[in-house]
Design a protein around this nucleic acid. Structure first.
Lengths: 214, 214
DNA sequence: CCGGTTATTGGTCGCATGGCCAACTGGCTA
DNA sequence: TAGCCAGTTGGCCATGCGACCAATAACCGG
């Protein structure tokens, strides 16, 4: 407290301001959708004038793309932390899938749905989505390969298995999304376990093996 | 030709005009996205004034929701025709899945992605999506049940199997969509066959059984 | 303490959207 | 043929958007 760098700063350092804007935009994207990221909206949120946001992001599309990348990265780090090296691959996978199924990450699946659709119209976002997709796919494939080496998984196509799992997770996200706040929500046991079941089947694990790891 | 009802009609009958507007809006939705359905856009397409569209659809959201329903219904009738009674369930399913994998129906999967996302903001569309989802799910479930009765499929949870297939199809649609027009497009055999493989596994069919039905 | 750099302001523009409404006129009916 | 109903027009409004820019003032270095 005694040695606070800028006690009563009015103007912020560019890096600090830029990061602040990005963080705010990412939060808006997760909570309300990427199309709600607006120069005015972000400015209001930060208590500054819209022009300032435009100053840091001359093209609004850039802000949207970077906000998505920021949000997707942070969420992935929570779902599939890179610094869990001490943990066995099978346990990392189990945690990843269970966290997803938790429903806690409804916002994230909505964000992906949002981004995938919006990328149809926004070049920069399309590239960002592709990049994030690659990162996730690569990380999961590496995890599976590590598990194969460790003798925990049995598959001769780690990428194929990763794709199957990710496609399933994505499909589930779409479904869950549709009836998010309706009471008519479809509730079937197959939906709850689908991702885990798929992973177990794809990796040569017995039914219930993954869930049992918790 | 001799007894053409309205040879040079300028003003159209309400039902006729309304259907014409809906058809146009549905086409725009399939080709360019639901958010391109605009009073002005549809009007231009039909060579009339924007106000006229507003006259038939006092709330623009209604037009969007009905256009989606129209497009989704037409496309479903092509993919899974109801009047194929002569065909065995297993053959109907095989045709359904192969048609989907064809890639011919990229527009349709994009439309669903579009609708699922946009339904977050539009009440009417949300209901329409739910309704269409129910129709498709019900039709596929009935098809599977018929196959079980005929001894072609083996499952004790037709709905669960239908859900698994539909979730997979949806997930694939999302993936295919993302890299639609990029050359970096991910190409893995597991993706091409995933829906069919899932169906075969879920229905107790041997690998390659479904594709062999063509 | 002063001068220059630049973060920030505050406003304006052009554009697209949906909604609204009075006026016009095509075409049916009595 | 006269008249009326309603399909259709044309124009207006408020709103929200991104882009742009000159002016201002906060901060930092000399």
């Amino acid at each position: 407290m005694a040695s606070r760098p800028q006690p009563t700063r009015v103007r912020k350092l560019p890096d600090e301001r830029r990061a602040e804007i990005l963080r705010t935009a990412a939060r808006i994207a997760l909570e309300e959708g990427l199309e709600r990221i607006t120069l005015r909206r972000v400015a209001d949120e930060l208590g500054v004038r819209p022009g300032l946001i435009g100053h840091y992001f001359p093209a609004a599309d850039t802000l949207v793309a970077e906000a998505f990348t920021d949000a997707a990265t942070r969420e992935r780090d929570t779902l599939l932390p890179a610094d869990e090296e001490g943990l066995a691959p099978i346990d990392r996978l189990a945690r990843f899938l269970v966290r997803l199924a938790d429903g806690t990450y409804l916002d994230l699946s909505r964000l992906w749905l949002n981004a995938r659709h919006l990328s149809r119209f926004k070049e920069g976002l399309r590239e960002a989505v592709g990049a994030q997709e690659t990162v996730t796919r690569t990380a999961l494939t590496a995890l599976i390969e590590a598990g194969v080496v460790a003798g925990e998984f049995d598959t001769d196509d780690a990428l194929g298995a990763a794709l199957h799992i990710l496609v399933t997770v994505d499909g589930l996200g779409s479904y869950a999304n549709a009836d998010a706040d309706i009471d008519v929500r479809l509730d079937h046991p197959a939906l709850d376990d689908m991702a885990i079941t798929t992973a177990e089947h794809e990796l040569g694990l017995g039914r219930g093996t993954l869930r049992a790891r918790l």
